[in-house]
Amino acid sequence: MPDRSTENRASLMGWAFVAPALTLLGIFMAYPILWSLYMSFQTGKGMNFKFGGFANIIRLTQDPVFLRALSNTMLFLVIQVPIMLILALLFAAALNNPKLRGRAILRTAIFLPCVTSLVAYSVLFKSMFAIDGIVNDTLMTLHIVAEPIRWMIDPFWAKVLIIMAITWRWAGYNMVFYLAAMQNIDPSIYEAARIDGVPARARFFKITIPMLKPVILFTTVLSTIGTLQLFDEVNTITASQGIGGGPADSTLTLSLYIYNLTFRFMPSFGYAATVSWVIVILVGILSWVQFQVAKDR
């Protein structure tokens, strides 16, 4: 039957096109994922493994450094992501107004931070927030503070600094997603609402926000995954003498702790793998919750 042979040929062709990618993904993604799951049940230092059952999970609950890294990461997530996404949404709503003067310049300027590498902007923030640096100078000149803020020495301000830095880098990035989605909303909907006398604020909450729900969900999930893996910034901005996450581990994140466990201390691969699976599970749970919340509304 000629039909069947063309079908088989097409199927074979299909596999031929996807085979190189699937092979590579199998070796460099699927296999490492499964291996690290297996590793997380192994204990021991260096390359001497033995089966440890739930030993690593018990160790997690008793490890103050892990608990600190976990609470820092969650704090960054809970405070930074909403601030950044709300800012991005406000910028997008304002820039979506065609009557706004300087729209193109403003949009480009606010988007610009996301072309910098994480390392490059981290270095800029590190130098601007030096104790006698430009930011403290400006704050004191404007009489907002009386004494210089100890950005990289005080645990509280170090966290604030990291949150500000990430917001600077990513707000414009998220704004572009919202702007693109807003431009897809049919202007006649707004026109009709205006004629019916719906005020601007209500138009924003009753039309724009519901229409943007899929994009808001997308950016929330993406930002959650990104923040749970926070590494570059805390390994640069709040690092001193080559060790990140300072001062006194106040900006230590889960990813940085995994890095330290693997490469800085006597390598403890099994335990580090367990910590990495905490991130996997958190990503899974939080993405699921975010999808549920988006579905209900």
Partner: peptide
């Protein structure tokens, strides 16, 4: 298979880093 790939998309790099190393 493609659906499976999308599922893997959300696994963070941290979980692959040590085996890859």
């Amino acid at each position: 298979v493609f659906g499976g790939l999308l599922l893997m998309l959300s696994v963070p790099f941290a979980a692959m880093m040590i085996p890859l190393f």
